[in-house]
């Protein structure tokens, strides 16, 4: 996923949730990012900082961000084999395509054992905000 788009989505969610909960200052958020999203942590943190500054609100100035990347695990629906993102042996262009639209992994990744494209992503897809901590 594109880092700036994700950062924008995170900020929008945090602001909305803090309003709902009546928080005046967010101290910490915890984000889980699937490996399949192919997020560059440094760019994401930079985007998050820039967007926080642009908000011009004291709500986010002390916000610490804890990020946890969940390793992607794929399981073949045909032969049951399980493997990880690094085992897929993707080219730079393929990685780039997956970065923009993670589900296109289904166009580029095949089961290393039986070559089937019919696999499920057991874990390591999507993004979620696990927790938001702050003061009211």
């Amino acid at each position: 996923m594109h880092e700036w788009a994700l950062a924008e989505a995170v900020i929008a969610t945090v602001i909305e949730e803090s309003r709902k909960e009546g928080l005046e200052e967010i101290t910490k958020i915890k984000i889980k990012i699937g490996e399949l999203q192919q997020i560059e942590t440094e760019i994401f943190e930079f985007a998050l900082n820039e967007l926080t500054k642009a908000q011009g609100t004291s709500l986010l100035t002390k916000m610490k961000v804890e990020m946890d990347t969940e390793r992607a695990i794929f399981r073949c629906r045909v032969c049951g084999n399980e493997w990880g993102f690094d085992d897929a042996g993707l080219s730079e262009d393929e990685n780039e395509a997956i970065h923009f639209a993670p589900e296109v992994a289904h166009a580029y990744i095949r089961c290393p054992s039986c070559k089937s494209p019919d696999f499920e992503v057991l874990q390591g897809r999507g993004v979620s905000i696990e927790s938001i901590k702050g003061r009211g």
């Binding site: 639209a101 993670p102 589900e103 166009a107 494209p117």
Partner: peptide, 18 residues
């Protein structure tokens, strides 16, 4: 733009995620 001419066999949850 991201799949080119490659087939992308997406099942239900994959379609929603994409």
């Amino acid at each position: 733009y991201f799949t080119g001419d490659k087939p992308s066999p997406l099942r239900g949850i994959d379609i929603s995620n994409a």
